[in-house]
Structure formats: C-alpha cells, structure tokens
C-alpha cells in the first residue's frame, strides 16, 4: 500500500467526518427554524393571537390597590420578595410565588412551588399555563387581571 494512497484515504476520511458535522448542523438549524413554519399559513390565527397577547396586569383586589398596572416583560416574578417586578404584600403569598415568561410567542404563568398555590380563573395551576387576555390570576388575596 503506497503512502500517497493512504494519505488520500486519510483526507477522504476526514472529509466524510466533517460532512457528518455539516449534516448535524444543518439539521439543527432546520429544527430551530421549523416551529415557525406551521403558523405561517394560518395568518388569521396568528394575528388574532397577537392582538390578544397579554401586555399588562391590572390589580383588581385588594381594593386599596385597585387599578395599579404592571407591564409584562419577557420574564417577571411575582411574590413578596423586594426583587420581584410585582411585589405583593400578601401574607398568603410566598417570597417568589409565580413567574410569567415568554416562550414561542406565548406568555406562560408558572407557579414556583408556592405554599398556597397560584390560580387562573379560580383553577389551581400545576404546570405552566398559557396566559390569555381577561384571565384572572389569584395569589393569596390578590387578584390580577391580564390585559
């Protein structure tokens, strides 16, 4: 077996190696882009969703805080801790009680294993739930309405 021939085989081997990586990278990119595709033909649905996207939370209860509005950012925490964007001084609320986060164009409300639970429209949530307009979030005695 001549040396040049072995060298050639070695280079070919390395090329196939990198071809494999290129395949993996292309597939990854394709996979990252894909979730958007199914939505495109359903423009109407998409627009409706957009127009209904929750942009702020308005306090309904307790009455002394009625009407206070909190804009929703990409990720906000609700709780008693001072670091929370929405600080509520409710004795039934935990320090870090709940979290609202944006994922795939939807806002989710997640209960952070709080002691007394988080409710959407009166129902206790077990896993992150999509937040829609007019949903009422209840934490302890505090009620926030999504707008």
């Amino acid at each position: 077996m001549s040396e040049q021939f072995l060298d050639l085989l070695k280079i070919l081997f390395l090329i196939v190696l990198y071809f494999f990586f290129i395949c993996v990278i292309l597939i990854t990119l394709f996979q990252l882009r894909k979730p958007k595709n199914p939505k495109i033909p359903k423009n109407a649905v998409r627009d409706r969703q957009h127009s209904q996207q929750v942009t702020l939370l308005q306090t309904l209860e307790p009455a002394n805080l009625l009407g206070i509005e909190y804009p929703i950012e990409e990720e906000i925490f609700i709780g008693r801790a001072e670091e929370c964007v929405i600080t509520i001084s409710d004795s039934f609320a935990s320090h870090l009680h709940a979290r609202i986060f944006l994922q795939d164009d939807s806002q989710y409300l997640e209960d952070l294993s709080s002691t007394n639970g988080t409710f959407i429209n009166g129902k206790k949530i077990e896993s992150p739930q999509i937040l829609k307009c007019n949903d009422r979030i209840q934490i302890g005695d505090t009620v926030l309405e999504a707008k």
Partner: peptide
C-alpha cells in the same frame, strides 16, 4: 441516516487503521 453515516465513518476508520 445520521447513524448510518456514523456507522460508515467508524467502519472506514477501522479499515484505515488496519491498512495503516
């Protein structure tokens, strides 16, 4: 398909090592 490509690479490497 990726796994088949991996299989090809491994077998090719095995043959190359033996040739070398």
């Amino acid at each position: 398909l990726l796994l088949l490509l991996v299989g090809t690479i491994v077998v090719a490497g095995y043959v190359l090592a033996s040739l070398g």
